[in-house]
Design a protein around this nucleic acid. Structure first.
Lengths: 156, 156
DNA sequence: AGCCGCACTGAGCATCCTGCCCAGGCGCCT
DNA sequence: AGGCGCCTGGGCAGGATGCTCAGTGCGGCT
C-alpha cells in the first residue's frame, strides 16, 4: 500500500472537520485546485482508506446505549464455527481474535442490563465456547479518534 | 432521544450501501420524495445519529496495521489525570472505563511490534497506572458492523 | 543539458444536484 | 370539524459535478 503524503493527510483532517464539504470547499480550504482534490478523493477511495459508512452509525441512536466487552474463551479448533455464530448475533458489533490464550474479545451493544444478560447467555450457548466474561463499559474516556494520529504523521 | 422509525432505519441501511449517494438517488431507492429524504437527513444529523467522520479513516492506511487492547489497572482517584495522559498519546485510539476492577481498556494502533512496545511503556509511565496488560489483536473476526442491528430493528 | 513522466493548475461545458420555497393531500388526535 | 405532522410534487436560481484539455513546474533519467 502506498504511503499517504502530506496532501492526503491534510485532506483527511479537513474531511474530519467538515465531512459534508463539497470538493470545491475542500479545495479552497487546502489551497489546491478542484481537480487535485477530486483526483485524491478517488485515489483514497480506491485504496480503501475510507472504512464503511456503517461505522458512523450511533448505537446510542439505535436504542443500544450500553457497550460491553465480552472476553470469550474458546476451543481453538472450532474458531470458524464460533465466528459464524457470532456473526449471527446482531448485537455483536465487532470481534477480535487475540494472541496468547485462545480467546476472542467481542464488543457488544445492548439496550439495557437484561438485554446484555440475554446476549451474554446466547454467546455462552455457542458450541465450543468455554467461558465468557462480560465487562460493562461505563464511560468512553477517549472517544474514537484518528485525527491526532494523522496529525502526528504530519510531523505535528 | 426520539426512536428512529422504519424510514430512518431504511435510510441508514441505504446509506451504508451507498455512502456517497445523492439525495435524489436515496429518494428513489427508498421510493420517497426528495424533500422527505432531505428532511430526514437533516433531522438525523441534528439528533447526532451520525458519528464523526474520523471513524471512517483506516488505521491500516495510516501505516498502523496493528491493533492491540491494553488493559490498564489504575488508581481510581487519578482517573482524570490518567485520561488526560491517554489523550496525549495519539496511538490511543479509544479508551473505555470498565466496571468491576478499577481498570481501563484502551485500544491502541501501532506500526509494528516495537512500536507497540514503545506505546505500552508510555502508558505504563503514566502516573497512577499500576499495571498494563497488552493483548495483540490477530484477526478481526467480526469487522465493525451496525447494519445487522439496524435490520433487526426493522423486524428482519 | 535535454528529455520524460508526473502531478497540479485553470479553464470550459453540459448535466445534475442542492437548498429553498410553496400548495396540496392524507392520516391521526382532540 | 379543525389542527398537526408528514409526505408529495412542482418550481427555481445557484452551485457542484464529472469530464476534458492545454499548459506549467519539478524531479529523475540518460
Amino acid at each position: 500500500m502506498r504511503t499517504l503524503d502530506t496532501t492526503d493527510l491534510r485532506l483527511l483532517i479537513e474531511l474530519s472537520r467538515a465531512p459534508d464539504a463539497t470538493t470545491v470547499a475542500l479545495a479552497q480550504a487546502l489551497s489546491l485546485s478542484r481537480n487535485t482534490v477530486q483526483a485524491r478523493l478517488v485515489r483514497l477511495t480506491e485504496e480503501g482508506v475510507f472504512l464503511p459508512f456503517e461505522r458512523r452509525i450511533s448505537l446510542d441512536a439505535l436504542g443500544h446505549p450500553l457497550t460491553a466487552f465480552v472476553q470469550i474463551h474458546v476451543h481453538q479448533q472450532q474458531l470458524t464455527e464460533i465466528t459464524a455464530a457470532l456473526h449471527g448475533i446482531p448485537e455483536v458489533v465487532q470481534a477480535h481474535g487475540l494472541t496468547g490464550s485462545a480467546d476472542v474479545l467481542a464488543r457488544v451493544a445492548a439496550r439495557n442490563a437484561e438485554d446484555l444478560f440475554r446476549i451474554h447467555s446466547r454467546i455462552l450457548q455457542i458450541d465450543g465456547v468455554d467461558r465468557a466474561d462480560t465487562s460493562l463499559a461505563m464511560t468512553e474516556l477517549v472517544a474514537w479518534r484518528t485525527v491526532p494520529l494523522v496529525e502526528s504523521l504530519l510531523g505535528g
